[in-house]
Simulated assay, not measured.
Amino acid sequence: MIELILHGFIDRPRRKQAVVPRGIATGDLDRVFGQLMGPSIDAADLYFQHSRSESWTLEEGIVKDGSHSIEQGVGVRGAISGEKTGFAYSDEIVLPQLLEASKAARAIARDGHGAGKPLALHNARALYPAIDPVESLPNPDKIALLREVDAYARARDPRIKQVIVSMAATIDTVLIAASDGTLAADVRPLVRLTCAIAEANGRREQGYSGGGGRYGYREPLENGRALRFADEAVRQGCGP
């Protein structure tokens, strides 16, 4: 699992404008800790995070807005030396940058500049599937899902003139490595779908409903939740 997550920071579909870092293995982490630790350093840890998200908005039956973003980085908590703690950060998850960050964090802790709180490391049971919701549905199917909810909402009441349907997904991957050999990881998917009625009854009425969870895009449609969001938005906008 840990090795998969380490390489999962880099084994993501390549997209235009996306910076894809190279692979980091547990042996590389040993090298970083070897440089970070020393006689005056009591403990240290590394915090890796990679977040990828997207959003889609359908208005008047047309995709009016869409976005995709990737954020990543690694924080080095440079060691508690007595009461001193140093921090360094890199947005590139590559070995050379990790080694540079470890040097900086160790120097800060040793020289007495900077302070911070230690990371909380623990092992937790899996509460949701480690899936990538962004890739759980092809893009044409995502648009089809938005249009299905839009058509369903309009069919519920002929007075409805404008419907806005949006959905978003995020995959957040976290890995914490501690100098005592502890590795803790989490993969956190999140999907949200909303339906809004912006015009009904011949005037500007509003109705809104939505929700989400830690699953892929298919689940809201397969369990009927997406259409129930539309039902509630129509109820609010048009009345019983």
Rank of each mutant, 00 (worst) to 15 (best):
A105E: 01
P133A: 11
T173M: 15
D132R: 08
R218W: 01
L95Y: 06
E135Y: 07
G114D: 02
L98K: 04
T173Y: 04
L146Y: 06
R225K: 11
I176D: 12
P138N: 02
D45M: 12
P220L: 04
D180G: 09
S67V: 01
D42M: 13
I2Y: 08
I197A: 00
G116Y: 03
A107C: 02
R22G: 12
R203A: 05
S166W: 02
A101G: 04
V191D: 07
H68S: 09
A196E: 15
V32D: 10
H113F: 09
A198Y: 12
Q72F: 02
D65C: 00
T57N: 04
I171C: 04
Y89I: 03
L175G: 00
P39L: 01
N201T: 04
G207R: 02
T26C: 05
L95W: 08
K142I: 15
K64E: 10
T182A: 11
A18C: 05
P133E: 06
K64I: 12
L95R: 10
L175V: 03
R235C: 00
G86R: 07
I5V: 08
S179M: 05
G82N: 10
A184V: 09
D231H: 13
L183P: 04
G112Y: 00
V234W: 01
I41W: 01
E54M: 12
G237W: 04
R154K: 15
